[in-house]
């Protein structure tokens, strides 16, 4: 699909953090295109800037310079409210630590994402099939503390895609899981990408996890290294 515009377009992205009085340049001019329907893995060692890239793409932190376009929206210059709206409408996020609300059941954790986006909290049969594919349709009435790490991460994935986001961003989604659960989660992400065409950008330091993606880029010292 070379003639369709990339769903994520990053140009000369720079991000400088202030660590005390010392400025730290985490991204030093990253340029990147992600095609619609692509499953991209971003790998690199600690401090390479991959998590910072994740935070900027998800709108959790603003860029210092450069341009970022997600599904046609330039986000680099968005204010806090704009970036909040981006997370609500365009981006689904999966974290390493699952980040489920502990007081709500799995079903409510998924439903609240729909409520925040202003949608009817009841989902349709298509999403019910997704829940079945994720293997959590019988765990929906459980609270996170009663679920395994793998189950929690699958609920987090369901929550991230319940609003049909343009992109799914996953930050070390298997970082807290054992091998068996890691394989289940990664297979589910690949299946999701293949069956629904969901664009996925996954940050990982693990080459085995990256192998589930259909493209891998490497980061080093705040730059794309290949």
């Amino acid at each position: 699909m070379p003639d369709t515009p990339p769903i994520i377009q990053v140009r000369d992205l720079r991000k400088v953090y202030q660590s005390g009085d010392v400025p730290v340049e985490a991204l030093r001019g990253v340029s990147l295109d992600v095609r619609r329907g692509e499953f991209l893995a971003v790998v690199g060692p600690s401090g390479s800037g991959k998590s910072t890239l994740f935070h900027v793409l998800s709108g959790l932190t603003p860029a210092t310079a450069g341009s970022v376009t997600i599904d046609g929206i330039g986000i680099a210059q968005l204010d806090e409210a704009g970036r909040t709206a981006l997370r609500k409408d365009k981006v689904g996020i999966v974290f390493q630590k699952y980040n489920l609300l502990p007081t709500l059941t799995a079903e409510e954790n998924i439903a609240i994402a729909r409520h925040i986006s202003g949608k009817d909290i009841a989902w349709g049969p298509a999403f019910q099939e997704v829940l079945k594919a994720l293997g959590i349709e019988n765990r929906l009435h459980h609270k996170p503390r009663a679920m395994s790490g793998g189950e929690q991460q699958r609920v987090a994935i369901a929550r991230a895609i319940v609003n049909n986001p343009a992109i799914l961003l996953a930050d070390e989604p298997t970082g807290n899981l054992d091998t068996q659960n890691s394989e289940i989660v990664l297979s589910l992400l690949r299946e999701l990408n293949q069956k629904t065409g969901q664009t996925i950008l996954m940050i990982t330091h693990n080459p085995e996890a990256a192998a589930y993606a259909n493209r891998t880029i490497r980061m080093r010292d705040g730059l794309i290294a290949g």
Partner: peptide
């Protein structure tokens, strides 16, 4: 939890 809600776009 507030951070989680914010990450969901609250």
């Amino acid at each position: 939890e507030i951070g989680i809600l914010k990450s969901l776009g609250a």
